[in-house]
Design a protein around this nucleic acid. Structure first.
Length: 380
DNA sequence: ACAAATGATTGATT
DNA sequence: AATCAATCATTTGT
């Protein structure tokens, strides 16, 4: 209303010149006569029109409807409409131009990528399973019972995915509904207001922007949920399983039978990992923990040490005995063998005496049924 | 419920 | 890159 009156005042020349709406209520315009084709008559017309517009709210709906129809049917209407649109376009210059182009939001892209990677926004079934499998592999579980471990995770993930999709669909539907509503409204209004198709387009894009910002919030919170789920289920620290009895058995056997240097080589670790059906990293962690904990409190591990020493002895006794016999027979002493202090560390040194005398003694006695001294004396 | 045991992580060190 | 040391978070044993 303001627009209309303003523009009509500013550009009287383009108003409904030469056409009297006044007496033609409900009648097609062409039936009415053209009384004043120039001068006073025209001004009079304009005044009448303005007056009519100003008082339009006082009129009944039927009357207004009829006037609208009369306006729409006027032969000059399309031309007038385009002129008004043009004027409006020019006067509203400042509004547009500022945010015409929209570069793809980097954060939105990050969110999209993550959702895709997690199998939330990707293809329905395969993507999710693949993502779960990948996550399982990355988490480095013990390998044997991954499926049971992660079925819960997968269930929750698909729950998130479902919520995400339904919400997204809801937003999309609402967006479309709203857009069509607004478009219809604007189209309807464009019969009486100078609204160009371009403007409608712009309005639509504004609406889409608004809705996509809502979508972004949805994506954000979905990402958060996935992250929480991940940390809850896949962080190995949180969901850890102790190794099987056999695995710890094998590892302990190696540890105590290499107590003087419990640093398995890469190959040895590989082999142990295979034997225990755990990962290489698990073996490394295990030895790291074992060394530090053993060193920290040797006394506590005494019993265990004896146990495994005995175990290994059963397997190795013959071999050792043979070796001893061999060395007795043909070779001078092994240079390092006399030294019984066991130190750990790397080439750089920093080795400490760690094996208690009792451990050594028990090792020797269980191995060969001789005392440490006896054993040494047999070699020297 | 509590403490001990245990596997993993992290930061520093070498 | 491998290891140590401290620490975390869970599991297991009581």
């Amino acid at each position: 209303m303001d627009d209309q009156s303003r523009m009509m005042q500013t550009h009287p020349g383009v108003s409904l010149a030469g056409h009297s709406v006044q007496g033609g209520m409900g009648l097609p315009p062409h039936v009415q006569g053209h009384e004043g084709a120039d001068g006073d008559g025209r001004k009079q017309d304009i005044g009448d029109i303005l007056h009519q517009i100003m008082t339009i709210t006082d009129q009944s709906l039927d009357e207004a409807q009829a006037k609208k129809h009369a306006l729409n049917c006027h032969r000059m209407k399309p031309a007038l409409f385009s002129v008004l649109c043009e004027i409006k376009e020019k006067t509203g210059l400042s509004i547009r131009g500022a945010q015409e182009e929209e570069p793809p939001d980097p954060q939105l892209m990050r969110l999209d990528n993550m959702l895709l990677a997690e199998g939330v926004s990707g293809p329905e079934k395969g993507g999710g399973a693949a993502a779960a499998a990948a996550a399982a592999a990355a988490s480095g579980g013990s390998g044997s019972d991954n499926t049971a471990e992660h079925s819960d995770y997968r269930a929750k993930l698909s729950q998130i995915r479902q919520i995400y999709h339904t919400e997204l669909e809801k937003y999309e539907q609402a967006c479309n509904e709203f857009t069509t509503h607004v478009m219809n409204l604007l189209r309807e209004q464009s019969r009486t207001r100078p609204i160009s198709p371009k403007e409608i387009e712009r309005m639509v894009s504004i609406i889409h922007r608004k809705f996509s910002s809502i979508q972004m919030q949805l994506k954000q919170s979905t990402c958060e949920a996935v992250m929480i789920l991940r940390s809850r289920f896949l962080d190995a620290r949180r969901k850890r399983r102790n190794f099987s009895k056999q695995a710890t058995e094998i590892l302990n056997e190696y540890f105590y039978s290499h107590l003087s240097n419990p640093y398995p080589s890469e190959e040895a670790k590989e082999e142990l990992a295979k034997k225990c059906s755990v990962l290489f990293l698990n073996v490394s962690n295990w030895f790291g923990n074992k060394r530090i904990r053993y060193k920290k409190n040797i006394g506590k591990f005494q019993e265990e040490a004896n146990l495994y020493a005995a175990k290994t002895a059963v397997n190795a006794a013959h071999a050792v005995a043979a070796a001893v016999q061999n060395s007795q027979a043909n070779s001078p002493t092994t240079p390092t063998s006399g030294k019984l202090a066991i130190q750990w560390g790397l080439d750089t040194g920093a080795w400490q005496t760690l094996c208690s005398p009792q451990t050594i003694t028990s090792l020797f006695s269980t191995f060969l049924g001789v005392t440490r001294h006896n054993f040494i004396s047999t070699r020297t």
